[in-house]
Design a protein around this nucleic acid. Structure first.
Lengths: 128, 128
DNA sequence: ATTAAAGCATACTAAATTAGTAGGATATAA
DNA sequence: TTATATCCTACTAATTTAGTATGCTTTAAT
């Protein structure tokens, strides 16, 4: 079971923005501070922007700011945007979490726990 | 965030064996019942055998049995063997869950919850 | 002993996903 | 007008996942 670097990068970038909130910061700075490829990060933050987690300002002196206060953004939101649904699915089988598949119980229970955990962590909890 | 089909196949196969425990069942039967490629499943169960979750009997009339009673085997054990560690890691960074990386808190918390959940589910909970 | 039915071992391959690059278009503050 | 930033899209390389193929070994039944 794993999360992608994408989720980690996205989370780190948002924590970074949280700690200078409400100031703007540009990709170059974030990427240097977090040691993440600037071009790649640019795309990742783009997805977070589409989903209204961050706002951007173009042009000279532009950059990104959190779209909401750090206490109003959760790790769950970010990770779900970066990595897709956190509720693990049954594959191969035609089973779509019906009672036909005994093991689907496991994925349902687990999904609930993961969501509960990650949606319970706010960006404000992650800045010192 | 996702689990592989490997984890799901392994779990389904073990649930299947749990429901006929303590009888032997061979790969062919399991693969037909669970609609999983026999050859692939053979390899997956091989890994579970190395890790002492199932025992095998070779030769004619051979097959597999759970190595322990269904109430003594957890979903966590199976999934961890199939899919590797369930504790999500930080990658890119040199960060090995030190306090340097604010977001590592997230992975630590989450890992704890995932383990707690999956190690709390026994095969005996999964058979009707 | 012979045979057939099972597991065991290893190597290969195809498909999908992930991670990262590249190059330019567009917007805007100075 | 220009420099600096985001935005957009396509491409590529690497890795992982899923699955196949082939043959060997073990063992119960005959």
């Amino acid at each position: 079971m794993k999360f992608s670097t994408k989720a980690e990068y996205g989370l780190r970038a948002m924590v970074n923005l949280a700690s200078c909130f409400p100031e703007l910061k540009n990709i170059k700075s974030i990427s240097q501070e977090e040691k993440i490829s600037a071009k790649y990060l640019e795309r990742l933050i783009g997805e977070l922007r589409e989903r209204k987690i961050v706002k951007s300002l173009k042009g000279k002196n532009g950059g990104y700011v959190l779209a909401r206060k750090p206490e109003q953004i959760t790790a769950g939101e970010i990770i779900e945007i970066m990595d897709g649904s956190m509720v693990p699915k049954c594959y191969g089988n035609q089973c779509t979490h019906m009672k036909t598949c005994a093991s689907s119980f496991v994925w349902i229970k687990l999904g609930e726990q993961i969501r509960k955990t990650l949606y319970g962590i706010k960006l404000s909890d992650l800045i010192k």
